[in-house]
Design a protein around this nucleic acid. Structure first.
Length: 773
RNA sequence: GGGCUUGUGGUCUAGUGGUAUGACGUUUCCCUCACACGGAAAAGGUCGCCGGUUCGAUUCCGGCCAAGCCCACCA
């Protein structure tokens, strides 16, 4: 009885923890910038530590790690940085909830501090999951809220400012009058609320007849700029191009036809006011109407509302309704349920208030960007379409300023007296809201300045991640060698933001594509195919799964589930299925570990040559998959080979020979295993490294991917016949109620298989095999 | 409502101008000295629906339906 060198009877997640300790000790993934090898840089998506790192996210990062491992095993020096995105809204919301405070009721300094602390805790958890998932980052770590990162964001802004690509313009913004703050789209909730739909009489200027318009926002009459009806609505055909007189205010507005008006709602006529809802905002832009601002930042009516000036919106609405009633201008009132956008904090309806914001020009760059996009290779190729479609739908420049606290500050000071704008020199991190200005005295003679309080949109930060990775402003030589970045891996849901903005920014700054390759993966979704989200309550956390099945099982599952670019559904049974394969693989290796590796004998047996020919097929498939960075291909090829051919057919055929010490068999078993370990290493780094170290005394991660083997391809033609013969023997024995190892006197086999005669006889314990044509 | 993507045995998936790949699950039998986290055998699909091109379509074209994602969201 032979003893296996691999002692553990089965594969288990505990072994992975031991491997993690070894990797840490050996620092095997450190990036050596003095290397003579070709450098491969990965612009890792800096994840946001918001506490909701679900299993789809950890699978996503595991797959990015597979890219790093593949490229290392192709001989590149890989820079695989660990970045953490920390700017933006989610942490502010999280901090407000956690400490039961409100953004604007706490000193800015204090609030920022609390956010930072909250992020530190969340980040720790996230990094633990990453490590446990086998993600082997290089010794390169950054945070987007570090001064060293933020100063680069600010430097790029100053650069773009100098190029004249930034301007300030007014636009409507979501505003909560109760919280007294602008709020992001992501902070808006919707609620079915009861509201009054009032039917108002307007006079037609040209004909002096009455028409009736239904509205839920009569207080916005003063801001009415246009009235529309649906082009298919024959009732109002005559009105097109005519004018209406707005009650109370006596303004004259044009009547137009527009698809947006629904004939069945109200009277079919819609008044377009600045701004009652999102569609008003859209229509004002589309119809190029001049907005009239009826509501100010305090949520009060402005001068244009006349006698309602200073009233709160609700109050003004009640008042104007009763006034209109007295004037006999209200035909009727209805109570309707109305899906109203409300602020998530105060639960009050939001308003649209006009605010000045900074814009980065993008429209004029779209044509050149399309050419840039053509120079980039997309994996999978279809994913390019997401980007092209998005670029074709862009109609306005990018608003980059936000009224937020936890973000990179816009580095601007203004002269208090003449409002002159001052930008500092690039290269430092500036916080204008609490720091002194970069100059002593303005041209106008004033020495009083005020610092900008706004911050940048988070995408303005994260869209330069590739510059930071490549060493911009930190290491000129490295930057020269590594920019453009080799690859951008990311999820398809942020193509229109992160990918697009990065390409735009890199082009504006360097006239170059930001990357050579873009790799777009699908989403990890729940069992029903829905996106995992907190509000749906369908989030699957990775930690329990990692504890139960381990990182390799999770990784193997994630790439076995779907090809690159498709969404993959979480299903515990399938993770268990991946785990079962690892056990199978472990046992194959454990069996082979019974035999001491040996040199290739001069004469090889036919069965051994045959399996090497089949192994070569697997290598070719895997290499194709690795070249395309589609890991589902190698995963399936390896699994299919090991489980359906190598273990049940080949091992069974040569088992007894191996036990007898036949060099050809033992050599081949090890030859196959060693290659399989290298082929499988990028996908399952734990189990392969463990076995490789046990059997071959070194780390598989320092090895290269195997190349093709010189072997006669003809041999694979035997495969089908071998499999069929084995199957028919098993079936025969089963039908006769025989044990599989029971002796059989004779059996018929196809003539071609005579070259495998001895192995087949031993395998099935057949006394006499008759080879027939 | 707009854009995009997808639609293959119970579930998930590969692929192709000539009726289909693999996995999981299911059923039955088997502890055979690497493995019961296993082995063997078997059942199961008119490749979303309708029409067109073709000798022939699951694969090409058009329409419809359904799902998912992103965007816009009811005056």
């Amino acid at each position: 009885m032979l003893k296996p060198k691999i002692k553990e009877k089965s594969w288990n997640p505990k072994i992975e923890e031991e491997i993690i300790r070894i990797w840490k000790k050996e620092k095997i993934y450190d990036f050596n910038k003095k290397t003579k090898k070709k450098i491969f840089t990965i612009d890792t998506p800096p994840p946001y530590p918001s506490g909701t790192w679900h299993i789809g996210a950890s699978a996503h990062y595991s797959q990015i790690d597979m890219i790093a491992r593949t490229m290392r095993m192709k001989g590149y020096e890989v820079l695989f940085p660990c970045g953490i995105d920390r700017n933006g809204l989610p942490v502010e919301v999280y901090t407000e909830k956690k400490y039961k405070i409100k953004l604007h009721e706490v000193p800015r300094e204090k609030f920022i501090q609390l956010c930072s602390t909250a992020l530190d805790e969340l980040e720790k958890e996230m990094l633990k999951v990453m490590e446990r998932s086998g993600i082997g980052y290089s010794n390169f770590y950054y945070r987007t809220d570090w001064p060293s990162y933020r100063k680069i964001t600010q430097a790029t802004f100053i650069e773009l400012w100098k190029k004249g690509l930034i301007y300030e313009d007014e636009r409507p913004t979501n505003y909560c009058p109760v919280c007294r703050t602008t709020i992001a789209d992501a902070e808006i909730e919707y609620k079915e609320m009861e509201t009054k739909l009032v039917y108002l009489k307007f006079k037609v200027k040209e004909t002096n007849e009455d028409v009736v318009i239904a509205t839920t926002r009569p207080e916005l009459l003063c801001a009415c700029a246009c009235v529309i009806f649906n082009p298919s609505d024959s009732r109002y055909k005559e009105l097109e191009g005519k004018h209406l007189i707005v009650p109370i205010y006596e303004n004259v507005v044009e009547v137009r036809s527009h698809e947006y008006a629904k004939p069945e709602f109200g009277t079919g006529l819609v008044m377009i006011c600045s701004y009652g809802d999102y569609s008003d905002v859209r229509l004002f832009r589309e119809l190029k109407l001049k907005p009239i601002y009826a509501i100010n930042e305090k949520g009060e009516m402005t001068d244009v509302s006349g006698k309602y000036k200073g009233m709160k919106v609700e109050q003004a609405r009640e008042k104007i309704i009763s006034d209109l009633k007295e004037m006999g201008l209200i035909e009727k009132e209805e109570k309707i349920m109305h899906r109203t956008p409300i602020c998530w904090r105060s639960k009050n309806p939001i308003e649209f208030v006009n605010m000045k914001e900074f814009y980065l020009k993008q429209i004029e760059f779209l044509d050149e960007l399309r050419k840039i996009v053509d120079k980039i290779k997309f994996h999978p190729p279809e994913s390019k379409q997401y980007l092209i479609d998005w670029m074709n739908s862009i109609t306005i420049d990018w608003p980059i300023s936000r009224r937020r606290y936890y973000g990179t500050e816009i580095p601007i000071w203004y002269c208090k007296n003449c409002k002159e704008v001052f930008l500092p020199k690039p290269g430092n991190y500036y916080q204008p809201w609490k720091e002194k200005p970069p100059i002593k005295r303005c041209k106008c003679g004033s020495n009083e300045f005020v610092g900008e309080t706004r911050t940048f949109d988070t995408w303005f930060d994260s869209s330069i991640s590739e510059l930071v990775v490549c060493g911009y402003m930190r290491d000129d030589e490295l930057f020269k060698r590594t920019f453009p970045c080799s690859i951008r891996p990311q999820g398809k849901e942020i193509v229109r933001t992160w990918l697009y903005y990065t390409l735009l920014r890199a082009y504006q700054l360097f006239k170059k594509p930001a990357f050579k390759y873009v790799w777009i993966s699908g989403l990890g979704v729940d069992e029903k195919g829905q996106k995992m989200s907190k509000s749906l309550g369908n989030i699957v956390l990775p930690q329990p799964v990692l504890d139960k099945y381990g990182g390799d099982a999770l990784r193997l599952w994630s790439v076995s589930e779907a090809s690159l670019g498709s969404d993959f559904r979480y299903n515990e049974e399938r993770v268990n299925g991946a785990f079962k394969f690892l056990t199978k693989f472990w046992n194959v290796a454990r069996f082979i570990s019974c035999f001491k590796n040996c040199k290739k004998p001069k004469k090889m047996k036919k069965s051994d040559e045959w399996i090497i020919a089949e192994l070569n097929e697997v290598i070719e498939k895997c290499l194709n998959g690795y070249n395309e960075l589609d890991f589902s291909i190698p995963a399936q090829a390896i699994r299919g080979f090991v489980w359906n051919l190598f273990a049940p057919h080949y091992i069974e055929m040569v088992k007894s020979r191996a036990y007898e010490g036949d060099k050809s068999a033992i050599y081949t078993l090890h030859f196959c295993l060693e290659i399989l370990l290298r082929l499988f290493a990028p996908i399952c780094p734990f189990i392969t490294d463990k076995i490789y170290r046990e059997l071959y005394n070194k780390s598989v991660h320092h090895e290269r991917l195997p190349g093709k083997i010189k072997v006669s391809k003809q041999l694979i033609n035997f495969t089908e016949k071998i499999v069929t013969l084995n199957s028919s023997v098993w079936k025969y024995k089963k039908e006769k109620g025989m044990a599989l190892n029971e002796k059989l006197d004779e059996f018929d086999a196809p003539k071609e298989l005579e070259i495998f005669k001895d192995d087949l006889r031993q395998m099935h314990n057949i006394k006499k095999l008759n080879f027939v044509l």
